[in-house]
Design a protein around this nucleic acid. Structure first.
Length: 798
RNA sequence: GCCGCAGUGGUGAAACUGGUAUACACGCAAGACUUAAAAUCUUGUGCUCUCAACAAGCGUGGGGGUUCGAUUCCCUCCUGCGGCACCA
């Protein structure tokens, strides 16, 4: 289209004026289809190719389903809280609220330009108080159910920025922003007990249609191990703590336990330091050093084990032998009980530790010829002995069967400004009390300075007017919580808000959730397959337990689709520093939106990684130009389609429909190109078949389709009914049957369809072919295979 | 180390349940149009042998297996990508 700008503007306005075209109807007899694409963080640099790619993928499907007569909900919103906005606001001396408004306005305009058929009447914004009122409400429910609590926790601390950092903000042990070495600091943090839902989150995956890769990633992340907790008696009677509890997956190796190790953070260590005289200084130094180290430093030094003897001994319950208790940072305080029973004969780490400190190695299972002093034998099978020992432990009352998880509780506090205020009040008399639900939302006050404070508190802590409040319980003087929520909080439940975005009394009405739930297709990036998806499922399951969301749907998303990644023309990840960034807007200005959309869908499979290639884009442009020319040359002829043309069209309808249903956009487009190649060879085509071609094009190239369709109809092509193939024109009169000798194709037979079932006749004909006769020669046919309608294979022995 | 995914022409890729390997597109080559270029159109294009055609042989990362028949299923190895990683 030469005048594509003009056409785009014309139809953009038309769609704007006919807003109902893309709106989801809450009261409809039609089948509902909830298609969700991950809402973006509206950054200052605007919509990038990755957005354009995934949103086009969703848009094609939404348009397709709408034309198939389904009641489609395809909403859009903004995940707008976050550090970049806060930092940008600080730098530009603007309010984050203002920056967010500017950015979302820009994103919305760009999305409309790219013809995404979002239902804008359902737009949500996580930074809107009427939205985060419900994010805060969910937090209060978590608190009321005992799933949110405050705890002193080590966090990543940047001494230069004077700010606590999330793990994602620490790169190679350094602060992402200033590059300073990150240390650890204990800060009182809100923690959410996602671990209570670990089993439910694994179990629930069975209810979903996620691809295996996503399910596996979630299962691995939760990392469930089955085993036992076992208590070891401490032999020193003067010790205030009499037992040391460990978690093990291998109770059957209990006889091989020759020492124990506790993490430097273990409570036993504090007792040792305060009461013991043995090596007091050495122990104190070791512990102090270990606690100072960042997680990274600790794991980096993993090859070489360090540790110190505590002076205490425990008793191995199997043989009553005294075994030393050591302190070492290879044991993690955050996993299991923070203490382990060491079996150096059958565990590599325990073995390395034993060798370094000269500890005893006792094999449980003797492997012939194995040198246990040299290497641990780790391939011990978890057999009968596992259960036998576990039963013995339980009978003796020193332990019990249990599971442990890699999944940690979720640190929910951020010491930043631009996030949802945690709706809690700290009362000196009553403790932590949630804000009254009727007082929600607790609106983020507008402050003058967004910089964090010296002591690592949120900038909100300086707002004394806001901080000082009264206790919701006793009415006395109290202070507000000044931490804000992490980014995930707003994105956990946004899909529910789209269902009922303006409801002021509940986060969404039961009735509407019953109609729209669950999300049928959720399109997003691989980077969110674990955290976002897991947090979101967790919050949903929590709301399900509360009865807030419909009982009929225990899982929020049915199908998860991960979109691929678009690399720069140099096959590298796009980044400003590499100068290989493709801006969709710029390309659309040159070639038109339809070309960009269609090219993005044609590049390759929707979920694969592909490099941008302007030459291939030209191929798509050529196709659209040729299609336009073909239709314009035919539209006034008013001729009938030949049978051959009808077959091309009907096969195309079937092919494109099937491919769209399976998100195989690249092959759908290839089929359209193929059809045009066949049609272009001097064929004439009926008006109804032309309209079919335009309809098939509509999801991909909405502007051009609308323009071409307007020649025939007054109504929008996007409201037209998707074509259905006529079975009469799907199969021809004849079928090609390939004939092969020993599996290699040598010739073919053209057979009338009604004769395809006649095996004997077909085999006779196959053997009669000149080529085949030549191949058989003097050989003997030992086997004849006929696959009806497909092929004949003759096995020849020479 | 563990988990997951992938490996097909010069390039992006297709072949969905085992049945014509390389559809579609790019690139390249030749030709048409043009004073010329661009654009457009036509034809050809896996590799080897051949002036060429016919025919043949080889061919989906390597090796092996199952099968009348394997890009597809099984075993094994190699390479690349992504995630997790002292998880007891």
């Amino acid at each position: 289209m030469e005048n594509f700008k003009e056409i785009e503007n014309k139809w953009k306005k038309f769609w704007e004026d006919n807003a109902g075209l893309y709106q989801a109807k809450n009261d409809s007899d039609k089948k509902k289809k909830y298609i969700l694409v991950e809402f973006p963080y509206p950054s200052g640099s605007g919509l990038h190719v990755g957005h354009a790619f995934s949103f086009t993928g969703g848009d094609v499907y939404a348009r397709f389903k709408r034309m198939q007569g389904e009641n489609v909900m395809f909403p859009m919103g903004w995940d707008a809280f976050g550090l970049p906005t806060e930092n940008y606001a600080i730098k530009m001396k603007k309010k984050p609220q203002q920056v967010t408004k500017e950015n979302t306005d820009m994103f919305r305009k760009q999305m409309k330009d790219l013809a995404f058929s979002f239902d804008w009447s359902r737009e949500v914004n996580t930074t809107d108080p009427s939205y985060y009122k419900w994010t805060q409400w969910i937090f209060i429910q978590l608190f009321n159910k005992g799933l949110a609590y405050k705890k002193e926790m080590p966090i990543n601390w940047c001494p230069s920025c004077k700010i606590g950092l999330a793990n994602e903000e620490v790169v190679d042990g350094k602060c992402e922003r200033c590059g300073a070495e990150v240390s650890r600091r204990n800060i009182s943090q809100w923690v959410v007990k996602i671990t209570d839902y670990a089993d439910k989150l694994i179990e629930g995956l069975k209810e979903t249609n996620f691809i295996d890769k996503v399910k596996q990633a979630q299962i691995n992340w939760i990392g469930k191990s089955e085993g036992a907790k076992i208590k070891f008696k401490i032999s020193d009677v003067s010790s205030q703590i009499s037992d040391l509890e460990v978690f093990t997956t291998r109770p059957d190796t209990l006889p091989g336990v020759t020492f124990m190790v506790v993490a430097p953070e273990h409570q036993l260590v504090d007792q040792i330091i305060s009461s013991s005289v043995f090596q007091k200084e050495e122990i104190e130094n070791y512990v102090k050093n270990a606690r100072k180290k960042s997680e990274l430093e600790r794991t980096e030094l993993s090859k070489d084990k360090t540790g110190v003897f505590s002076g205490l001994y425990a008793i191995n319950p199997v043989n009553n032998k005294e075994i030393p208790i050591w302190i070492s940072d290879f044991v993690l305080a955050s996993y299991g009980t923070g203490a382990i029973m060491a079996v150096p004969a059958h565990d590599e780490r325990d073995h390395a530790f034993a060798k370094k400190f000269g500890l005893t190695i006792v094999p449980v299972l003797n492997k012939e010829g194995w040198d246990f002093e040299k290497k641990a034998f780790t391939e011990v099978e978890k057999g009968e002995e596992f259960n036998k020992m576990l039963n013995w432990v339980e009978e003796k009352g020193i332990g019990e069967r249990t599971s442990s998880y890699h999944l940690r509780d979720w640190i929910f506090s951020r010491q930043h400004y631009w996030g949802e205020p945690i709706p809690m009040v700290n009362c000196p008399k009553c403790g932590m009390i949630p804000v009254k639900e009727s007082d929600l939302p607790i609106v983020l006050p507008e402050v003058e300075a967004y910089e964090p404070t010296d002591d690592g508190q949120s900038p909100l802590s300086q707002m004394t007017d806001w901080v000082n409040t009264t206790c919701p319980k006793c009415g006395g003087e109290a202070k507000r919580e000044t931490d804000t929520m992490p980014n995930w909080a707003g994105s956990d439940w946004y899909f529910l808000r789209y269902i009922d975005p303006h409801n002021d009394t509940v986060l969404a009405s039961q009735e509407l959730m019953k109609y729209w739930s669950p999300v049928d297709v959720y399109i997003g990036g691989d980077e969110h397959n674990v955290l976002h998806l897991l947090y979101s499922r967790f919050i949903y399951k929590f709301l399900w337990d509360l009865g807030v969301v419909p009982k009929e749907y225990p899982e929020p998303y049915i199908k998860r689709l991960s979109h691929g990644v678009i690399l720069g023309p140099d096959n590298q990840r796009m980044s400003k520093s590499k100068g290989n960034v493709i801006v969709p807007e710029t390309v659309a200005d040159i070639y038109g939106v339809d070309v960009v959309r269609m090219y993005l869908m044609f590049m390759g499979p929707f979920d694969s990684t592909m490099a941008w290639n302007e030459k291939t884009l030209m191929g798509v442009k050529r196709y659209l130009d040729r299609l336009e020319k073909f239709i314009n040359s035919q539209k006034e002829n008013n001729l009938a389609s030949s049978k051959e043309v009808k077959m091309i069209i009907n096969k195309l309808i079937n092919g494109v429909t099937e491919d769209l249903e399976a998100f195989r956009y690249n092959t759908a487009i290839a089929k359209m190109m193929e059809a045009l190649n066949s049609l272009s060879v001097g064929q004439s085509i009926s008006l109804s078949d032309i309209k079919t071609l335009i309809k098939l094009l509509a999801p991909f190239a909405p502007y051009m389709a609308e323009e071409l369709y307007s020649f025939f109809e007054k109504t929008s092509v996007h409201a037209a009914l998707w074509p259905v193939a006529d079975p009469k024109f799907l199969i021809g009169d004849e079928t090609t049957v390939m004939v092969s000798i020993n599996g290699k194709v040598r010739d073919k037979l053209i057979i009338k369809n009604e004769e395809l079932i006649n095996k004997e006749e077909i085999l006779r004909k196959a053997k009669g072919l000149d080529n085949i006769k030549k191949w058989i020669g003097t050989g003997e046919i030992v086997k004849e295979v006929y696959v009806p309608g497909k092929m004949v294979n003759l096995v020849i022995k020479l």
